[in-house]
C-alpha cells in the first residue's frame, strides 16, 4: 500500500498501523491526513492507501 510520510512516498504492508511506522513517541507527534493522532491511539490506527502522515519533532527556531 502506498502512503506518504513527511511528503515522501513510501510502501507499507496492508496491516500497517501508525505504531509500525513510528515505534517511539518520545519527543515526536504525528498527524494523519491533517489531524493530530495522540500516541495512545497509534497502535489502533490502521493506515490506508494514499494516507499522508506527518511526523514532527523540535528543531531549532526563534
Amino acid at each position: 500500500m502506498n502512503i506518504k510520510v513527511n511528503g515522501t512516498p513510501r510502501v507499507v504492508e496492508e496491516e500497517a498501523t501508525l505504531h509500525s511506522l513510528v515505534p517511539s513517541a518520545r519527543g515526536v507527534a504525528v498527524a494523519l491526513n491533517g489531524a493530530v493522532v495522540p500516541a495512545a491511539a497509534w497502535h489502533d490506527t490502521r493506515l490506508s492507501e494514499n494516507d499522508a502522515v506527518e511526523v514532527v519533532t523540535a528543531h531549532q527556531g526563534g
Binding site: 514532527v56 528543531h59 526563534g62
Partner: peptide, 26 residues
C-alpha cells in the same frame, strides 16, 4: 523557543534531549 518540523534521521531528538537535560522551559 524551538520550532516544530518534520523529523529527519540525522537530527532527530538531539536538540530536545539537550534542552531537557538543561532543565529549561521549552
Amino acid at each position: 523557543t524551538v520550532s516544530v518540523r518534520r523529523t529527519s534521521d540525522t537530527e532527530r531528538g538531539g536538540l530536545l534531549d539537550m534542552l531537557r537535560a538543561l532543565g529549561v522551559r521549552i
